[in-house]
Design a protein around this nucleic acid. Structure first.
Lengths: 190, 190
DNA sequence: TATGGTTTTTTACATTTGTCAAAATTCCAG
DNA sequence: CTGGAATTTTGACAAATGTAAAAAACCATA
């Protein structure tokens, strides 16, 4: 990423970054990710190509920002101050489910057009995991400890949640909340 | 991948593919993956660029072939006909360890130059997991079953092994074989 | 509302990418 | 051998990529 996202964004930058995200989102529904060029993105967003390169290294970089943007703006909001470790999976599940319902047509169209796109699907899975990771971090202090190294335990916990979510929401298994939760408990052997 | 790897390869194709792999390997030690262009690869391999594109879609495609090539040629060889499920982790560990020792300088140099390269490191992790997956498949019929869906259990098992290997060999924790094995057992709660 | 510094956008350019069809080479049946 | 089919290599081209520095827009302050 060329643009420094650590410092607070100006109104201009926000608008421009937003335009590129919307343009990408639109194109993802009509072209697969592989067939999207920086040219097309800029045309759709209404900016010359050099502007794109002021913010991003390439389209992969934009996709990464796109996920982060969604996770921070749409999913990691209105979280309760504290949750019971036992209910972690339920909370994560609900958040993803809600998002899926609210953005149904959009998600469906993007999924349909990109199910064969290797890079895109990998990136999606990876960012689903990253979402779980951020979620976990918020409540980590209340999570049960064991005799494993902290980092290893954290990674494993996140892996398990991401695995179950991936099967439920990306591979599209028709599990309800309770079944999903049962698998989660079984894999953690708690 | 443009070239059809399912049918048996001709001598020519083998030589050419080999040259590109060697060229990539050399460049990975001097330039990071991001700074490697198809131009450089072809220059190093001694082929015009169009030849490259007869075999691969792009450099990412070559990298993928490179891993598969290594896994099939160097790691998934001389495997025992049968292993005890309890010793699965030991066997995988030994295979990776052996490979690391035999290719010490090469691995070290590539690691050093690419530790900051996002795409490369992701691809490496993913292919380490894929190696475990293939390893597991060979012995799947002897592995213990449970009441979880088969595919979910398999994915989880592979995730756990890949997680531990990643910590041991990629993140570079100084765990010996026994410690590594203990973590594996603990995460599977067996 | 003028001014100066900062951020954002743009133009123009050099490089890299990926494709195509023709040329060269290899393969193999007779 | 040999001639024709299949495979591999190649040069030349059009398109996409990424960069540098100039131009414009923005914004705080006097």
């Amino acid at each position: 990423m060329k643009y420094d996202t650590s410092k607070p964004m100006t109104k201009n930058a926000k608008r421009t970054l937003g335009s590129f995200c919307i343009a990408l989102n639109e194109l993802l529904k009509t072209d697969g990710f592989d067939n999207i060029s920086v040219n097309k993105i800029c045309e759709k967003a209404g900016y010359p190509r050099a502007t794109f390169y002021n913010y991003f290294d390439d389209k992969y970089d934009l996709l990464e920002f796109f996920w982060t943007h969604i996770i921070n703006m749409k999913v990691l909001v209105n979280l309760p101050e504290k949750i019971e470790p036992d209910n972690f999976m339920r909370n994560v599940y609900d958040k993803v489910y809600e998002f899926g319902v609210e953005n149904q047509e959009n998600c469906r169209a993007i999924f349909y057009k990109n199910k064969g796109e290797n890079y895109f699907m990998n990136s999606l899975r990876y960012n689903l995991r990253d979402f779980v990771y951020k979620f976990y971090q918020k409540y980590e202090k209340d999570m049960p400890k064991g005799d494993l190294p902290d980092d290893l335990r954290r990674e494993h916990f996140v892996d398990v949640v991401a695995l179950v979510l991936n099967y439920r929401f990306i591979k599209g298994k028709n599990w309800d909340r309770e079944e999903t939760y049962r698998y989660f408990r079984a894999l953690l052997k708690e």
